[in-house]
Nucleic acid binder design. Structure first.
Lengths: 241, 241
DNA sequence: GTTGATTGGGCTAGTCTCAGACCATTGATG
DNA sequence: CATCAATGGTCTGAGACTAGCCCAATCAAC
């Protein structure tokens, strides 16, 4: 932690890659987080390019790449578009080990720590906020949807629930940061088998999180999220050994 | 918080600007956060360009712009380089109002919320970590340096103290996120007059943060950081009205 | 002084990216 | 069946960005 080490924090690469690569990553994030659900359609190219702040040419290259890899099905003509064909693979310990190897253990620890910090922070902030009845209702509804989810929808609705907490704080920065943190571990989470015991356990923790937030108890909210995420991380480590 | 609103979280601009603009921002961050202190020298162009992942041409344009605006003094020849000439302006309520106007109230709230969440998260994570004696020593030393600081060095050492907490977690992602959060409000913090009462109050809070972290009390660490940052935010709001 | 290593300054050829215009395909609607 | 609005597919010229090379200035060491 000497002086030169601190430079790394700020004087790091300005760009993670070229526009094409970054666009592929972003679209993949939207697909894997379920922002655009399976069967759903991406916005029209012209509109999406404007939202992403890139040219249509670059966007099309990215869409082409994802189409080649089977994530998207592109259809021409009116009512055409880029449709999501991706479905998360069946949970598999082999996939998990492979994903971790590609990622590297240090990076995995980094991502898990990052997620723990930002999601706990978001929950704490939300618990400290005076929520409108509408906001409370959003939180309750996301929880209910998750509890009624089938195995196919579980991951997507779990993501939606977690991200809602950050979104409800009203901080765009916080919401995008939580989305980023989640997407860094989503492949790993998808590789964990969904056992009923674990789902039941998670349901109890999700309820505890909502109750703590709704009752305005910051410490309880922080603790509930930490316990939940550490449980998930422990599951991950268990399937790695 | 309808479905389309959630797309905004992920399908947002891929790039914040062109390479030149982003590089200027990054260098400004390094200067204003005191990563490169006044009188200090930036790394040689070739090295810095490599670290930032950009070409020398683009880096030189950015350095030229900052030099024109008086942030840097560039000297040629051996033992030359780009030297930081920037010193934070004298605190001034007028500057503060102007800075807030340029920023917009919504963005300010966003930045403050963001900072609160990530710094509390970092402190909580660090408190949960088993620290080596070296790490404990870093934290204690940063605190001591800050307490001995003169008015000229206070902001820089305060930044160093806060960032140390995130850096000590070992998560690069968390450290860069905290640095980003801090830099979003640094101009505003610099505009707040430094009154002895406030400095004394901050010193007590800083000590509480360190003690909570060193004793491994996550809730206390979270609370201490939240109290400290909310105090700063309150000061800000006070000087705005 | 002379030298030589280090550093900023500048040029060029090639690639990436963009804005905008125009073409091709599709399918609901009349 | 003909129409036409919406959407993907393609091309072009201009500007941004890069890698690599060489030049110019400076100053400690000899």
């Amino acid at each position: 932690m000497d002086e030169s080490a601190r430079w790394m924090t700020v004087l790091r690469p300005v760009r993670a890659g070229n526009a094409f690569e970054e666009t592929v990553e972003r679209l993949l994030q939207a697909i894997k987080l379920g922002v655009v659900p399976p069967g759903g359609k991406l916005p029209p190219e012209r509109e999406l390019a404007a939202q992403l702040g890139i040219s249509r040419v670059t966007l099309r290259e990215a869409i082409r790449a994802l189409s080649d890899e089977g994530y998207l099905d592109v259809r021409r003509g009116r009512y055409g578009g880029a449709f999501v064909t991706y479905a998360p693979p069946e949970p598999d310990a082999g996939d998990l080990r492979q994903a971790v190897n590609e990622m590297g253990m240090a990076e995995l620890t980094d991502a898990l720590t990052f997620r723990l910090a930002v999601e706990c922070g978001a929950a704490q902030v939300l618990a400290a906020t005076t929520l409108t009845e509408d906001q409370r209702e959003v939180l309750r509804r996301r929880l209910a949807e998750l509890n009624q989810a089938g195995l196919d929808d579980y991951r997507r609705l779990d993501t939606a629930f977690h991200l809602s907490i950050a979104e409800l704080t009203g901080s765009t920065l916080l919401a995008t940061t939580c989305a980023d943190a989640r997407s860094r571990v989503s492949d790993l989470l998808n590789a964990i088998p969904m056992l009923q015991v674990n789902l039941d356990h998670a349901a109890v923790q999700h309820r505890a999180i909502v109750e703590a937030i709704l009752s305005g108890d910051q410490d309880a909210a922080r603790r509930a999220v930490a316990e939940h995420l550490e449980g998930t991380a422990a599951l991950l480590r268990a399937f790695l050994s």
